[in-house]
Each structure stands twice: as C-alpha cells, then as structure tokens.
C-alpha cells in the first residue's frame, strides 16, 4: 500500500529539529532510517501529519570509542556500520552480534540502532545487550538535554520515556570492565532471518575466584518491554556457574518472564526458551569474562 500523506520536515540542526518537534507535538513522527516507521505508516498503524527526518542533521551518525568514556552511537549510525566498526567488534562483540542479527542486509544498510531502540519493540535485537551493558540514551529538547538509563527507557510496547518534545540523539555505553563478559542469544525457530521469538542477553563480572561479582540479564519478547531479571541476577551474585546454579538461574529467569502467545511462539514455549537461552547466555558470558 502507498504511504499516507504527510508533510516532510528535514532540519539541518538539532535546535531546529527540537523546535519543529515541539511545534507539532502529537502530530509528528521522527524518522531515522525509516525501515520500521514507513512500514507502519503504509499499514496505517501511524498517520502522522508530519515526518521529522534527521538525515540532514550533521554529525548524528558517529560511532566513537574512548577507552575512558566508552562507546557513543549517534542516532543516525546505521546497523551495518555498527556491525563493521572495528572498535565495536573489539570491545563490544555482542553489540555487533545483535546488530548483525537484526533483519536483513538491506534493512541494516538503512536502519539504525537508535531506531530499533526507540521503536521499543519487546523483541528488538539491539536492546538486550545494551541493557545489560547499562547503556543510556541522550534525550534532547529545546529546554535542554538529559541522559536516560536504558533500564528506565521502556514503558510498554512502542512506548518510551522520551517526552513528545525530545529527540534521542545518542546512545552511550560504558567502558567494558576487565573481567566482564556479555552474551546475546536469540531463537527464531522458523528461519535464520526472523524476529526473535525470545532473546536473552547476559552480563557477568567475575571476581578472582570466578564467582559472579555482578550479573545482569535482559529477556526479550517475553513481556511488554525487554525485561531485566532482578531475582535471577541477585541469585547469581557470589556464585560460581556450576551446573546446578545454571539450572536454577534458568528456572528463575523463566519465572520472571511474562510472555504471551503470538504468531511466532506460544507463551509456554517462550517461557521454556527463557530458561534455555539464559543458561546458554550465562555460559558464554562467563567464557567471555574469563578471556577479557
């Protein structure tokens, strides 16, 4: 179906973008890569009067790494560029894995990590790894800028903590701690190219005796937003990843998930997969941590 009619706004500066956003609150959608927005518009799920495109704003597609401050991804940084970026591959291999697991070659050439986050789909590939890395989003409005931890960013399917006047300009990811490791696990049983039926990211920081000093988990596609699993995380702290610990962690995580049934999987299957993927993610994160 053709796209519905809209007015197209393509400011050169973020200041102008913020002004336009504020002026057309409630009737405007922000476009980064557009790969999700335009699909939803053509299905008439969204009918904005205005589309605010960020493509002409200079300097929004940066990917930079600083060993003291960490990784910064501009709002217009494309998925394909994140996949291929040497610093991402070296310091955040699971971010690259998640970006590469997103959709198809063409979509990765067009779409952005920020877009994937701001759509706030519970199954988004790029959220879990960023979440367990305690990333944050910079939100800019005419009145100023604030930093929103990803853990507080998602309010529901398609809903974020961004105010109607705010533009998400940058993702900030802290420097990986020595002795930490991350894993991203995804199951889409129908095809190698599919939205996740369940995805799980795990972060582990080990102490000198290979016990978990910190543990973070993010469970995707099993709740209205990607979920942290605080009870499982607490359980893991101070423990060695013995088989029985893994088993229990998997079961705990499954208990923290609140899945529903849809075209991709039933809630029962999803819950079971949370347990399986959690175990697999913990094992891999553990291995990563040992080698980091």
């Amino acid at each position: 179906m053709s796209l519905p009619k809209f007015s197209y706004l393509a400011p050169d500066t973020l200041e102008e973008a913020c002004r336009l956003l504020a002026a057309h609150q409630g009737k405007i959608k922000i476009k980064a890569g557009g790969t999700d927005l335009l699909v939803r518009m053509s299905a008439r799920a969204f009918k904005p009067d205005y589309v605010l495109a960020l493509g002409k704003v200079a300097g929004l597609d940066h990917i930079t790494f600083d060993p003291r401050t960490g990784l910064r991804l501009g709002a217009m940084a494309k998925l394909a560029d994140v996949v291929d970026h040497p610093a991402v591959r070296e310091h955040y291999p699971m971010l690259a894995r998640a970006a590469k697991a997103t959709a198809t070659v063409q979509i990765r050439n067009m779409g952005t990590v920020m877009g994937n986050i701001c759509n706030a789909s519970p199954s988004a590939d790029n959220i879990p790894t960023l979440m367990v890395r305690e990333a944050s989003v910079i939100a800019l409005a005419a009145t100023g800028e604030r930093e929103i931890p990803l853990a507080e960013f998602f309010l529901g399917p398609g809903k974020t903590a961004l105010q109607p006047t705010e533009i998400a300009t940058e993702i900030r990811v802290p420097v990986p701690e020595a002795g930490s490791g991350v894993s991203y696990q995804k199951i889409s049983p129908r095809s190698k190219v599919d939205i996740a039926a369940v995805n799980v990211a795990a972060f582990l920081l080990l102490d000198g005796e290979r016990r978990c000093r910190q543990a973070r988990l993010c469970l995707g596609a099993v709740g209205p937003t990607p979920l942290r699993a605080p009870r499982t995380e607490d359980f893991l702290v101070g423990k060695e990843l013995r088989p029985e610990v893994l088993e229990e962690a998997g079961e705990l995580a499954a208990g923290e998930a609140t899945p529903i049934s849809d075209v991709r999987a039933s809630k029962e299957y999803r819950r079971l997969m949370v347990a399986i993927l959690t175990k697999r993610a913990l094992v891999e994160a553990h291995n990563q941590a040992l080698h980091h």
């Binding site: 095809s191 190698k192 190219v193 599919d194």
Partner: peptide, 16 residues
C-alpha cells in the same frame, strides 16, 4: 489472517 506480511508468513531464505 494474522500472517499477512513476509515477516509473519515465513518462507525459507537462502540460509535456511
């Protein structure tokens, strides 16, 4: 029909 796109109606891709 709840599967009216190629995202939801899944035909095998080259990797499958």
């Amino acid at each position: 029909t709840l599967t009216a796109t190629f995202l939801d109606y899944k035909i095998p891709c080259a990797e499958d």
